[in-house]
């Protein structure tokens, strides 16, 4: 599903060039469960931003569903994000003035889904994540775990092909964190590609495929507890 071909992302800081991603090639199939780990500044977030079409590579080709997407214009990329990619953030990024229901409804409105269908889809996803009774609460009336579940509901409601999670448990206590992971893995079992960026080794270990980044390069790509040779 995802095909990265010799991708580099170079930032210019002052006069210095920083290679956040250095010639990375990577394939991720539909329905995979991948964790991306590595020390700070290793390029994890940059990789996630690239995968989510929030950023463009300096060099290389990114193909999504066999279609080169990194060269698409802003509007076409926005459309792909809207329809195929779900994001889950460390700090939830819920809109504070909207209720849980309205936060989840937002991507459907953006996709032009009619009101009746929206209501039905939002209810069913909130129900499946166990927060239907919180539908009319605003984010400040919800606990951290509930907020992240609302955020996940918002990502899932458009039925994306992949879910990109950036430290999804980074701002939660252990129990809520585990609940959130349960939900994400459950969705993965139903066929959703799940890509998690994390510092937390316990969380990272759970993934069937573990990618380790250092200095913008993939230094480890392990599948099924079995070390795979480095792609180079």
């Amino acid at each position: 599903m995802i095909h990265l071909d010799h991708i580099s992302r170079i930032f210019t800081v002052g006069t210095q060039e920083v290679r956040a991603l250095d010639d990375i090639s990577l394939d991720i199939g539909a329905g995979e469960y991948v964790s991306i780990m590595g020390p700070s500044g290793s390029g994890k977030s940059t990789l996630l931003n690239l995968l989510g079409l929030l950023d463009r590579p300096t060099h290389g080709i990114y193909k999504l569903q066999n279609e080169p997407v990194s060269s698409l214009d802003e509007e076409q990329q926005a459309r792909i994000r809207r329809e195929q990619i779900g994001f889950v953030f460390q700090f939830f990024h819920l809109i504070p003035r909207l209720t849980a229901f309205e936060n989840v409804e937002l991507p459907l409105s953006l996709n032009g889904v009619i009101k009746e269908e929206r209501a039905q889809r939002v209810r069913s996803i909130l129900d499946s994540l166990g927060i239907l009774d919180r539908a009319s609460h605003r984010p400040d009336q919800l606990s951290g775990g509930q907020r992240q579940r609302v955020a996940i509901a918002r990502a899932l409601v458009v039925q994306p092909a992949m879910l990109l999670a950036d430290e999804p448990t980074g701002n939660l206590d252990r129990r809520s964190g585990r609940e959130v992971i349960d939900i994400l893995e459950d969705q993965n079992r139903k066929g959703l590609a799940l890509i998690v960026v994390t510092h937390d080794p316990d969380l990272g270990k759970r993934a069937r495929r573990r990618i380790r980044l250092e200095d913008g390069q993939i230094v480890q790509d392990i599948r099924n507890d079995q070390t795979l040779p480095l792609e180079q």
């Binding site: 989510g52 929030l54 802003e74 509007e75 926005a78 459309r79 792909i80 994000r81 809207r82 329809e83 990619i85 994001f87 953030f89 990024h93 809109i95 937002l106 991507p107 953006l110 996709n111 918002r154």
Partner: peptide, 9 residues
């Protein structure tokens, strides 16, 4: 930022 990530042009 969120709206952009959600695919708002």
């Amino acid at each position: 930022g969120l709206l952009r990530a959600l695919g708002v042009e």
